[in-house]
Design a binder for these strands. Structure first.
Length: 739
DNA sequence: GTGACATGTCATGTG
DNA sequence: GCCACATGACATGTC
């Protein structure tokens, strides 16, 4: 039974808290209110279970709590109430499901982000993930434009005679190890933003210049920004299955290049911009439960791609979206994912090949084509229409990783929304922990003096603050601080000398309820005690098990201080302080103190009894006193344990929240890294593929050929059909595994 | 007068 | 069976 109770009290409570943390809303209140009294009692315990208690005995401090009882009282008083409310509130964390605080970053000079931009994929319900953020907008454009382009491209069909004898047009080993994909161009790629600004001016002309650019056949190095003769259309989008391979006007092929670039989630300076914005917004960004996505992709002001995701027009936004618009200069107005600016990023310097029609869709969610590099930039998920026509892509390791991570992110965010977990709060919480050595987290909503006392008490082992501090903190509850509060429990069992004095005083027979009243007054107003000189020296005993001798010396005023006139007052006071059992003991002429009766070991207690000739009534009373005294201490300890349990639970909850916040931040970091990697791969793919020439010196058609990683790290040029087949195979494998 | 709170006490269960 | 302890339930006093 005991174990069951313990399980129910602690286990259920902890379980409930854990459920609430993982997003399962457990409405404890419904159980606690009235409908299920047993559970209420189990969890909350008796009405006084979580209230202040006095722990009068040191000997019985549990589990090495080792706290001075006097300090425990006050600490626990406030902490218990606060913790109880927190524990109850754990299941009440409610955040409007779709309440989103989005920061719109828009450039003033070039036109602020239109009001419709808030509708960008910020909605979390439908698209809390990265994919959805860009999805709606992209998908439409993709489906509309890609199909036409790809179809045209297929007809273009670059027949590729072997450039060299070793290479066949079907399987050309580039001989380029992965080292070819070094990131030497990284730096220049980071200049994309600069190029973007320049490119923004070219936006309008790009689409019209598409044919011209193709004619010029200049290819811009996506990373270096250098223009070089493009001997074949650098159309990677057509490479992927996502793009239906159909005849396409040559001029449009170039347009397909941009999606690759846009598919890159963000330029390399995204990180810096991200952090800059974060520094500005601090953790407010994360305050949005869904925010991680928005922040991640919309925050970087200078990142056209990211802004596109967040600001993509035409994207429905859910009801409770609060937009925090941050004006940032330098951002073009239209950041649609497929806007020319974005598309031009990788090839910013070259206007020739950049006229990319916003048809190609590569969203953040785009997965890397597995071994098929072509598919890398045109993930099936995003290129819905394209995939349908072109067939599944080859799974991409990075793509899968990214997808999974993003899905996790989505789910994580959803979880955060559901459970009302506020990353900001969590992070702030963590900061508090970091700064504060950890304990007083709730100083804000706790009494002013609580933090310190709570800190001591929150540790279940009860490191215990000094009695003085505890008394000061407790005073807030009783509206008046009192150094004598710690003496409040002095109604306990008196020492020998006390008893003797009382006996001398006589008269005090029977229970006098006023004693407790007086004691309460004592801590309410210290001045009341100060009025009584002898009370200044009355050390109220909080500990039943303190040695009587010690009590004698500490509690009793010096005889010299006692005046004849005050003896009576003292007697009355002490008499009032006596417990009922003490009065009874006195009345029954019990020859020893209640302390001894209660605290002596059984053997010693029996010896003590044997030393005296006691009547049955006296023996019965002594046994009752002993029983009640022990039970009294037990009750106090029990209540203390309850408080400690709550404190431990609070600490556990705080730890879990802190861990959760940390994991969220880590996840954001990982996603950022993945996006960067993806962008790099895209650029490299584009570069490599664009440099390939068939035997006639013409570039390969992305619709017919694709690059593929070989097992040895080399890159192969294979027909798209073959790449598609391999992609399908690899797609099946994971599915089979799941089954 | 009433409710909340603190504390003590009893009954009961456990080891 | 006794003892110590734990704990729910209740009683009582105080504010």
């Amino acid at each position: 039974m005991l174990s069951l109770k313990k399980y129910l009290t602690e286990g259920l409570l902890q379980f409930t808290i854990l459920l609430s943390l993982i997003g399962v809303r457990v409405d404890v209140d419904t159980y606690l209110t009235s409908q299920l009294p047993p559970l209420r009692e189990i969890i909350l315990g008796p009405s006084s279970a979580y209230t202040q208690t006095q722990f009068h005995n040191l000997r019985n401090t549990l589990d090495g709590y080792g706290v001075h009882p006097k300090s425990i009282d006050l600490d626990n008083y406030f902490t218990a109430r606060r913790l109880l409310s927190q524990v109850r509130a754990l299941d009440r964390f409610q955040v409007p499901t779709t309440e989103v605080n989005a920061w719109l970053v828009h450039r003033d000079p070039e036109g602020s982000v239109s009001g419709s931009q808030p509708s960008s994929g910020l909605t979390l319900e439908s698209s809390s993930g990265l994919q959805d953020v860009t999805g709606p907008d992209n998908g439409v454009r993709e489906s509309e434009t890609e199909q036409g382009f790809s179809e045209d491209l297929e007809d273009l069909g670059a027949v590729a005679p072997p450039v060299s004898g070793d290479l066949t047009k079907e399987d050309i080993d580039l001989g380029a190890g992965r080292e070819i994909f070094d990131y030497s161009h990284r730096q220049k790629e980071q200049d994309v933003d600069k190029d973007l600004q320049d490119g923004a001016e070219q936006d309008d002309t790009w689409s019209g210049e598409g044919a011209e650019a193709l004619a010029r056949n200049l290819l811009v190095d996506g990373e270096t920004g250098e223009s070089f003769p493009a001997q074949f259309p650098a159309d990677i989008s057509s490479i992927t299955e996502a793009v239906p391979s159909e005849s396409e006007p040559p001029g449009l092929q170039n347009n397909l290049l941009s999606p690759l670039l846009t598919g890159t989630d963000s330029p390399f300076d995204l990180e810096q911009q991200w952090q800059d914005l974060m520094s500005i917004m601090e953790m407010q960004a994360m305050e949005v439960n869904t925010s991680t996505n928005e922040i991640l992709y919309s925050a970087p002001p200078g990142d056209p791609l990211s802004t596109n995701y967040s600001l993509a027009p035409n994207t429905p936004i859910n009801q409770n979206v609060s937009l925090h618009q941050a004006s940032l200069g330098g951002c073009s107005q239209d950041f649609s994912l497929f806007s020319p600016e974005v598309e031009s990023l990788p090839v910013a310097s070259s206007s020739t090949l950049l006229p990319l029609v916003p048809s190609n869709s590569t969203s953040l969610n785009s997965t890397f084509g597995s071994t098929n590099l072509a598919g890398l930039f045109f993930p099936p998920q995003l290129n819905g229409t394209a995939n349908d026509t072109a067939g599944p892509e080859l799974p991409d390791p990075l793509g899968g990783l990214l997808d999974e991570a993003m899905l996790d992110e989505i789910s994580l965010m959803d979880l955060a929304i559901e459970e009302g977990f506020n990353p900001v709060q969590a992070s702030q919480l963590e900061e508090e922990f970091d700064s504060d050595s950890g304990l007083s987290l709730d100083s804000s909503h706790s009494p002013s003096s609580l933090s310190s006392s709570e800190g001591s008490s929150s540790s279940s082992s009860s490191s215990s603050s000094s009695s003085s501090s505890s008394s000061s903190s407790s005073s807030s509850s009783s509206s008046s601080a009192s150094s004598s509060f710690s003496e409040e429990g002095a109604v306990g069992y008196s020492s020998d000398s006390e008893t003797l004095d009382l006996e001398e005083a006589e008269g005090a027979v029977g229970y006098q309820p006023e004693y407790s009243k007086f004691c309460r007054m004592s801590y309410q107003d210290p001045s009341q005690l100060s009025c009584l000189p002898y009370l200044e020296h009355v050390g109220h005993n909080h500990t039943y098990n303190m040695a009587p001798s010690a009590l004698d010396s500490a509690d009793l005023p010096p005889p010299s201080a006692l005046k004849k006139g005050s003896k009576e007052k003292q007697a009355d006071f002490l008499d009032k302080q006596m417990s009922r059992d003490e009065h009874r003991a006195r009345a029954m002429k019990i020859p020893f103190t209640n302390d001894k009766i209660i605290n002596l070991p059984v053997e010693e207690f029996n010896e003590l009894l044997s030393k005296y000739q006691l009547s049955e009534a006296q023996l019965s009373l002594i046994r009752d006193i002993r029983r009640r005294g022990k039970n009294k201490m037990a009750a106090q300890n029990c209540r203390k344990r309850k408080l400690d349990t709550i404190l431990n639970l609070e600490r556990d909850v705080e730890d879990l929240q802190r861990d959760k916040a940390r994991l969220l931040r880590e996840k954001v970091e990982f996603l950022r890294s993945l996006r960067q990697m993806k962008q790099k791969v895209q650029s490299l793919y584009q570069e490599v593929f664009g440099r390939l020439r068939d035997e006639n010196g013409r570039p390969y058609s992305p619709s017919q050929y694709a690059l593929q990683y070989a097992g040895d790290g080399s890159v192969l040029l294979i027909p798209r059909t073959l790449a598609d087949q391999q992609a399908r195979r690899q797609e099946r494998k994971p599915k089979d595994r799941r089954k």
